[in-house]
Design a protein around this nucleic acid. Sequence first.
DNA 1: GCCAACGTTGGC
DNA 2: GCCAACGTTGGC
Length: 179
Amino acid sequence: MLSGKGRRGIGYDTRGCYDCDQAMNYWLLKTEPGCFSMDDLKNRPDMTEHWDGVRNYQARNFLRDQVKVGDGALFYHSNIPEPAVVGIAEVVRAGYPDFTALDPGSEHFDPKASPLNPLWYMVDVRYVEKMPSPVTLEKIRNNPLLSGMPLVKRSRLSVQPVTAEEWRIIRAMGGLESR
DNA sequence: GCCAACGTTGGC
DNA sequence: GCCAACGTTGGC
């Protein structure tokens, strides 16, 4: 599972009990705010949107196999002057085929995908709350307790697992109540 | 805009 | 199955 091999020492398979049906899991979802931002999510009907367009196999595997309804997500803005976790979303639909891969008109179209072999997967997420103060990448890097995060290890992975401890710490750093 | 990291592709 | 070339991500 998980593309085997434990590439480059990032042991995703040791970062939590992702196979436990009962366990609440946490994730970090990256997006370029110029493309889709936390405010965009808030402004959607039901404050809900498909998390589509993921075209990386490792990220795809998380979406397809492990992200569950009720899981928490750190909403991360990338590729801007001050990249940061800006808020919290929750998963409201688990992995299902990403139809944008089948749509020739979509910028995420993938000719290798087909209805019988959808290839790419997405989940649906709903806006929960913004961080009173965004937790910048710089702050995350400067916190030794967060040094295990793929984000800090310069992984470009756009869907990443977050441990319960990291979740708690980042929420607190952003000024959210512990929960 | 630069460029390091790193994922993907394709020739062999 | 190796690996060079190439493309993309994303911090800076």
